[in-house]
Design a protein around this nucleic acid. Structure first.
Length: 425
RNA sequence: GGAAAGGUGGCAGAGUGGUCGAAUGCGGCAGACUCGAAAUCUGUUGUACAGCAUGUCUGUACCGAGGGUUCGAAUCCCUCCCUUUCCGCCA
């Protein structure tokens, strides 16, 4: 959500931001609406002021036993005008709100130009891609070969984009999740949270899923939204609050299932469990003072990278181009992990600095020591990392010619010491 | 799910139709006293928006949320949300 004052002061920057997102300039239209709105508001307030003055006059005149007929008549005339005025102000306010709440965040100056992944810029590549003396398989083939992944039966039970995992492979996924959250809580200063998986409209609006992306979400019959990411619950932890400067930065993490309808991605990544309606993810969220958010984005990205490094996975860090970022983001780094079976780098994490965009939507502010007034916090979120995709990456990178999977060192304590996952005979 | 009681400023808590943005206490901040601190005393202390005369300015709104009644609502009515207690059900 944009700050109208900022648009007033920076109409060109606002339009440039929209343009870089592939949208047309709107500043003149919005500022026109704003001007009308404020004029209406002023008129409305004058009427209210008059009414208040007369009303309190009625009180005191009555007390002295005077006649209030004339004053009451005057007030009722004002009231008639007010009803009209109120409605106009309400309409205009709503129009502005709806316009603004549908606009994506401004890209940072450092984001590359472009509207899709073709223009994204690789910042660094880390780790060694494994070499194989055979043609590496994709994860679904490996899982099937192990006898521990069943998409077909999941299809019968739940439809497309669901998977059964079994035995050691199921445990490997759980091990990955545990490993990640332990790493972030013990080494990266994040506090573990257990969060609601179902949220109300306001929460989904706050993090930017609503109103524009409702078709991407699942909703229960009584109106709850299933979280598509723990970002929603974690970030809304500060919704509607005025924090003390001392409380910042807030760094929280949660390992949760995520639910996504994947509307609009029909036919994409239909093999295996790369793109599911339901998957685990360890999410990182930071709530920081405005001047700290860029530094925090680098830090958060490093925390996510560390997961891949410890797992011995090769990856690249990509800076998303202005038009390829999510709705709420001001600047985003994606981590793309090397998948030998697919012979490609694929997204496994996305770390975003949302600036005050979400904070404004959810009204999350903080107070600076000794200063008057409040400021909006900056919010950041990042996957640290997607567990299902990490499982895919481990399977593909650690596969052996016979289809077995070597368990990465760091996961063995979580696997009861198991070193290799062998096919069920 | 049923019944009851509630939701007021950072916290506690008063206020049940008019001078109430709201008593009082605690806390916070500033000052006095003190070598310093504690105690004590004095003052001060919400947020957002609009306006211009840009000010220790004026106005408007906000007492869970949204509607309604009224000249006037923290106060009355309706709906919803949430909390607490009891009962029922339940992983």
């Amino acid at each position: 959500m944009y700050d109208m004052k900022w648009i007033r002061d920076n109409p060109e920057a606002f339009d440039t931001g929209l343009k870089r997102r592939g949208l047309e300039a709107l500043s003149s239209k919005i500022l026109e609406m704003d001007k009308e709105y404020r004029a209406m508001q002023t008129a409305q307030q004058e009427l209210q002021s008059k009414r208040n003055a007369l009303s309190s006059q009625i009180g005191s005149v009555k007390k002295q036993g005077g006649d209030v007929e004339a004053i009451m008549k005057e007030v009722s005339e004002i009231k008639n005008k007010m009803a009209d005025m109120d409605e106009q102000v309400r309409q205009k306010g709503l129009e502005i709100f709806e316009t603004l709440s549908a606009l994506p965040n401004t890209p940072d100056a450092s984001c590359p130009e472009g509207f899709d992944d073709k223009t994204n810029v690789v910042i660094r590549q880390v780790g060694q891609k494994p070499t194989f003396g055979f043609t590496p398989k994709e994860h679904d083939e490996l899982g099937f070969g192990l006898g521990m992944m069943n998409v077909e039966q999941a299809g019968r039970v739940s439809g497309a984009r669901f998977t059964y995992l079994k035995g050691p492979l199921a445990r490997l996924e759980r091990a990955l999740g545990q490993f990640m959250i332990d790493l972030h809580t013990t080494e990266h200063g994040y506090t573990e949270m257990e969060v609601p998986l179902m949220v109300k409209d306001d929460a989904a609006f706050g993090t930017g899923q609503l109103p524009k992306f409702r078709e991407d979400l699942f909703q229960t019959t009584n109106g709850f939204w299933l979280i598509p990411t723990a970002e929603v619950s974690l970030t809304n932890y500060v919704a509607g609050r005025i924090l003390d400067e001392k409380e910042l930065p807030i760094r929280v993490t949660a390992l949760t299932p995520c639910f996504r309808s994947e509307a609009g991605s029909a036919g994409r990544d239909t093999r295996g469990m790369f793109r599911q309606h339901q998957f685990y993810k360890d999410e990182l969220v930071s709530i920081v003072a405005p001047e700290k958010s860029f530094e925090e984005l680098e830090r958060m990205t490093k925390c996510a990278e560390e997961v891949l490094q410890k797992l011995g996975l090769a990856y690249q860090v990509v800076c998303l181009s202005a038009g390829d970022m999510s709705f709420t983001s001001h600047k985003t780094y994606d981590l793309e992990v090397w998948l030998p079976g697919q012979n490609k780098y694929r997204e496994i994490s996305s770390c975003s600095n949302c600036g005050s965009f979400q904070a404004r939507r959810m009204d999350a502010r903080f107070k600076k020591n000794g200063e008057k007034g409040t400021q909006y916090v900056h919010t950041l979120n990042g996957s640290g990392v997607a567990v299902g995709r990490a499982l895919i990456a481990v399977m593909e990178n650690y596969q052996q010619e016979d289809g077995s999977i070597v368990v990465p060192e760091v996961l063995r304590p979580y696997m009861g010491g198991l070193e290799i996952i062998k096919p069920i005979k």
